[in-house]
Write a protein that binds this DNA or RNA. Structure first.
Lengths: 185, 185
DNA sequence: GTCTATATTACGATAGAC
DNA sequence: GTCTATCGTAATATAGAC
């Protein structure tokens, strides 16, 4: 039951955010009763922490696998950026950034902060590797470029949701790859 | 009073989103009483529509002024991207994209959708102008590039909030300008 | 136009039985 | 571990007086 509670909370946080997710909704989706939920967790913030932590770990593990995978640095970055994503659902971690109650709670906030600071640094390292290997021109700064690329993904979700069209997300990624291409080889 | 109600709602939607904003909070911030609010507006959705519409119009007017201002196309785009923004507060329109109740209501959703579809098209037009005038290389597709650039801004807010550091937003913009620079002139 | 009173439902949690 | 009962507060209005 503990497991279902966490998974249901992850889904609801993704769909509706922290403020928009009630204990009751979690109980209904997970099939757990009132008492069960408060037996396993101290309350909504405690349960949310478990859910957020897991989503953050999952996101990071996936990115790490792609960015440390086989292929040249630029190929790995392209693979990471081009990975199929559910654009209209958005990013389960990035979304929390808009949740005032999450950002106001240092415990809930930490996994979000760490995930993105890690991701930006990791991507910057791969870009630096590409530059060192002569695959990337010397022009673009790795750290700034990494932040811009991660921003394209996060902003791509925003624009896709605004348009109610996943294709807009794909277009944002294409645009970023097109800009990057001018600096490659 | 009608005016204060709209302005207070705009602020609260920006800070806390639609789900996180209660009629009571609006009344307290605006100084209006219960009866006053329900005299001027039919309810929370009606008031939110007025607030969202105004924020959307403001955002569009500001962008239009910059993108249609003086200077070469690339200079205007650079000016638009580099404009000082309150990175930690984020975008008052883009933020609504994460609000399930806003996206579920066609009336509330429309201003959000229109603002971004207009912005992407307008930016694409300026990029096409740059290309036609020989200021921008033929490589990058104007529409995809425009979407990517708008995404950098929207995603830059996400990353800045995640890091609780406005500088991260500036870095995302720098990264985008750096990538764009390789295709200019 | 604004105020106060009232109503209904949901939120977020605790207590104690089983 | 789970269930039911209960609690106090907040959300989102409506009604009617002034």
């Amino acid at each position: 039951m503990r497991e279902q509670l966490i998974e249901s909370t992850r889904e609801l946080l993704w769909e509706r955010g922290y403020v928009g997710t009630s204990p009751k909704a979690i109980q209904q989706r997970s099939g757990a009763g009132q008492g069960s939920m408060y037996h396993h967790f101290r309350g909504k913030p405690d349960l949310a922490l478990a859910a957020i932590t897991r989503s953050a770990e999952e996101m990071r593990a996936r990115a790490e696998a792609e960015l440390s995978g086989p292929g040249s640095p630029i190929r790995r970055i392209t693979a990471y950026l081009s990975r199929e994503r559910d654009a209209l659902r958005g990013c389960p971690v990035g979304r929390l950034t808009q949740d005032p109650d999450v950002m106001a709670d240092p415990e809930l906030r930490r996994p979000v902060e760490e995930t993105f600071s890690w991701l930006r640094a990791r991507l910057a390292a791969v870009l630096a590797e590409a530059r060192a290997g002569g695959e990337l021109a010397a022009g673009p700064d790795p750290a700034a470029t990494a932040t811009a690329l991660v921003a394209v993904l996060q902003g791509g979700y925003v624009l896709a949701r605004a348009a109610a069209d996943a294709e807009v997300y794909a277009q944002a990624v294409d645009g970023a790859l097109g800009l990057l291409a001018g600096h490659v080889r």
